[in-house]
């Protein structure tokens, strides 16, 4: 797993790896929102947690189809599948690599972009925490979706169609935690539910992703 993780991280940061694209997309979406809804501080600060969560989710979605598609195109996937690492481990390593290269930068950048949307101090803290807990689940769900659609023509579009409904619970609890945090309410319940979803995804989705990969490789 460490080997795959290292390779994917190295590939992501080298030229053509697409590292930072998600981050740039995140920035652009957040910059565009005030143009759409108007510059009133009050409105912006009220919708900021939700906007930042939706933008982070879309930015994470952007790089999902690269998780397995590149390995499929250059023939690495059957070679990886015959390696000693079980496919479940491969899926987990891939999800972790995706989170480290996409999710983690989003978590770090979110409070900075929160300034643009007049997010309050506690709001920033809880946005950071909710994203830190929620984005690994986004990567895991995305890895499952990528495993389902690897090798399909128009796979990218299909991937969004399949993954976005699966993102609903994460988005609801994540954004709810951030919103409650910004309003100074208790955030424990949504955060715990968010963490529960994340742990459940980590425990089960690698198996589903591996099952899908086995079918695809057949």
């Amino acid at each position: 797993m460490r080997a795959v993780l290292g390779r994917d991280l190295r590939l992501a940061v080298r030229a053509g790896g697409g590292f930072g694209l998600g981050l740039a997309f995140f920035l652009i979406v957040v910059v565009l929102v005030p143009f759409g809804v108007g510059p009133e501080t009050e409105i912006l600060s009220r919708i900021a947690p939700g906007i930042l969560w939706v933008a982070a989710l879309l930015a994470a979605l952007l790089s999902l189809d690269r998780i397995f598609a590149l390995d499929h195109e250059d023939g690495s996937l059957p070679l990886l599948a015959t390696a000693p690492l079980p496919l479940e481990g491969l899926a987990l390593a891939k999800a972790l690599a995706h989170w480290l290269t996409t999710g983690l930068p989003l978590v770090v950048a979110a409070p900075i972009l929160g300034v643009l949307l007049h997010l309050s101090g506690p709001g920033m803290l809880w946005l950071l925490v909710s994203l830190a807990i929620g984005t690994p689940a986004l990567s895991l769900i995305g890895t499952f979706g990528a495993a389902l659609t690897v090798g399909l023509r128009r796979g990218g579009l299909l991937l969004s169609l399949i993954v976005l409904p699966l993102y609903v619970p994460v988005l609801i609890f994540g954004a709810e935690a951030a919103r409650r945090g910004a309003d100074g309410l208790s955030v424990a319940t949504p955060l715990l539910l968010l963490g529960g979803i994340g742990l459940g995804c980590a425990a089960l989705l690698p198996f589903a992703a591996a099952a899908a990969l086995r079918v695809t490789l057949r």
Partner: peptide
């Protein structure tokens, strides 16, 4: 996930 969404939406 559909079941989770159902309860998430309620929440």
């Amino acid at each position: 996930f559909a079941l989770m969404s159902r309860y998430a939406v309620n929440f």
